[in-house]
């Protein structure tokens, strides 16, 4: 992983997450804005997948367990599309909250990925 890109992703995930949770609690059904946050996060994660494949070839290897890293990355990548699909099917305020919770979960997963990639565990 590349530190600045990780930071960008986490910032987007947290902002999109807080925005959607706030909008949901303010009784708004899912909107273009809240879903765009999750969609942007999905695109960033897709790029992260490409980077995680390429990085080891350039000598930037994960220091922790690579399988664990990939388990997190794939899980995180699945979340935004599922949340958006959910929001499209169920047009209630709580779907907006669900989108936000998913984004915040991705933020936590990104932090875990960062730790696995950079911190020597074993």
């Amino acid at each position: 992983m590349i530190l600045w890109y990780t930071v960008v992703q986490i910032v987007v995930a947290v902002l999109a997450g807080l925005l959607a949770v706030a909008f949901g609690l303010a009784k708004r059904p899912p909107s273009d804005l809240t879903m765009a946050g999750a969609a942007l996060l999905g695109v960033l994660l897709l790029a992260q997948i490409v980077m995680a494949i390429v990085a080891p070839l350039t000598g930037n290897d994960p220091t922790g367990n690579p399988y664990e890293f990939w388990a997190y990355l794939i899980s995180a990548f699945i979340l935004p599309p599922v949340a958006i699909l959910w929001a499209l099917l169920e047009r209630s305020r709580w779907s907006t909250v669900v989108v936000g919770v998913a984004c915040l979960a991705v933020a936590v997963m990104l932090y875990r990925m960062h730790v696995i990639w950079t911190v020597q565990l074993a």
Binding site: S75, I78, L79, V82, A83, W86, E90, S92, W94, S95, V97, V98, V101, A102, A105, M109
Partner: peptide, 13 residues
């Protein structure tokens, strides 16, 4: 539904 979503994420993790 939010509870279900949290459970789903936990199950995935």
């Amino acid at each position: 539904l939010v509870l279900v979503a949290v459970y789903g994420i936990l199950a995935l993790a």
